[in-house]
Nucleic acid binder design. Structure first.
Length: 362
DNA sequence: CAGTCGTGGAC
DNA sequence: TGTCCAAGACT
């Protein structure tokens, strides 16, 4: 083996300490711990990717209410799936979830494959998520390596280098493999995540309560905060896009479905300004200037990648013929169950009345 | 391998 | 008010 784990504890001792801590201080009443069916565990794991528990809980409850099992999910339209995903972010997760449900129902008889490799072949399920589904729904031995585990193991062994680097990640997988037991996989998997989520936190770890404080290499150096190393920073360019708020005589708003991949893939959003050259002159006359006045701060949505701007002056047209499969009129007073981009949804639900009545700033 | 993908919590 | 980044996977 080229990657020596060099653990600080034997696997048995690590498991004994961790499970003893978990039995007393672990989380035991999260919604997806109620009924650990593969379906519920799967949906929860997908929602929890890069997303905090408190954010996921209400989405998970709504999702389970509407789609209690994989067949209900497979029968739904992608639009309705994305509707329940609106605001959660990373919408490829929702699209992949829907695709995978179709595969499970149509090709696997509605049953989840119960080995890691078959699971990881489904869209949206990688190595760690596959392990989490196996361990938590069947209790069979499977290894996970999520952000919590990475943070804990990185500190415990003072692993240098950003965990996103493949070499570092390989070492962390080897360590995770070393410590993973052959029994109590349901509890162990939750425990190792709880350790990182509640004790070995990013900002303020509570080393005084940690069952591994006496063997933690980062703590021995007094450098808990230095691990894991942060991602090398890249100065992101700010892209600016102007969106068009277009209403018909009945007050409905023109929406456009975004391409299947990329930002807000498959979701409905406002059309982009540039897509209406025939209106360009009209808008230039009535909405001169290219920047939004600070009187409309909520019209500007800043992402980590770019910034969105929505035209400050609403345009009114009596009719628009270019409505097709990727364009639709949307009535904010009687909303359809479709996936709306989160800023657009908040605009249409809460800010629109203000926006339409307000006058442009100076 | 290095980018890309969302939103909100934490400080 | 800005920065960092979270139960990662895909291209």
């Amino acid at each position: 083996m080229s990657e020596m784990p060099s653990p600080v504890l034997s696997a048995v001792e690590f498991q004994r300490r961790l499970l003893a801590w978990f039995d007393v201080h672990g989380r035991h009443d999260l919604p997806w711990q109620q009924d650990r069916s593969p379906y519920r565990v799967w949906v929860s794991e997908i929602m929890l990717q890069q997303t905090q528990v408190a954010t996921v809980v209400p989405y998970f409850e709504r999702f389970m209410m509407r789609f209690p099992n994989v067949r209900a999910l497979a029968s739904a339209s992608q639009d309705e799936v994305l509707h329940l995903w609106t605001g959660l972010g990373y919408y490829a997760r929702g699209r992949n979830l829907h695709r995978a449900a179709g595969v499970i129902v149509d090709e696997l008889g509605g049953d989840f494959p119960m080995d890691s490799e078959a699971l990881a072949a489904l869209p949206g399920i990688g190595r760690s998520t596959a392990g989490a589904i196996i361990a938590q729904s069947s209790g069979e031995r499977a290894v996970i390596l999520d952000g919590n585990v990475k943070r804990s193991l990185t500190r415990l062994h003072a692993v240098e280098g950003w965990p996103g680097r493949p070499a570092v990640e390989r070492r962390l997988w080897a360590l995770a493999e070393h410590y993973t037991p052959h029994e109590r996989l349901v509890d162990y998997t939750q425990a190792i995540m709880d350790l990182g989520a509640t004790l070995c936190r990013r900002g303020t770890p509570e080393c005084g309560r940690c069952p591994f404080v006496d063997v933690c290499l980062a703590h021995a150096r007094g450098e808990e905060r230095r691990f894991p190393e942060s991602k090398p920073k890249k100065t992101l360019p700010t892209r600016t896009t102007r969106m068009l708020l277009l209403r018909d005589a009945r007050g409905r708003v023109l929406l456009e479905q975004r391409p299947a991949s990329g930002l807000w893939g498959g979701l409905w959003s406002l059309p982009q300004f540039d897509e209406f050259p025939e209106l360009q002159d009209w808008l230039d006359c009535h909405a001169p200037g290219s920047t939004i006045e600070p009187a409309y701060p909520s019209f500007i949505h800043v992402f980590s990648h770019f910034r969105l701007e929505i035209t400050p002056q609403p345009a009114r047209v009596e009719r628009l013929d270019a409505v097709g499969e990727t364009r639709r009129w949307y009535d904010p007073q009687n909303p359809d169950a479709i996936g709306l981009a989160a800023p657009v949804k908040s605009l249409l639900t809460g800010l629109l009345p203000f926006a339409l009545n307000a006058k442009p700033g100076p």
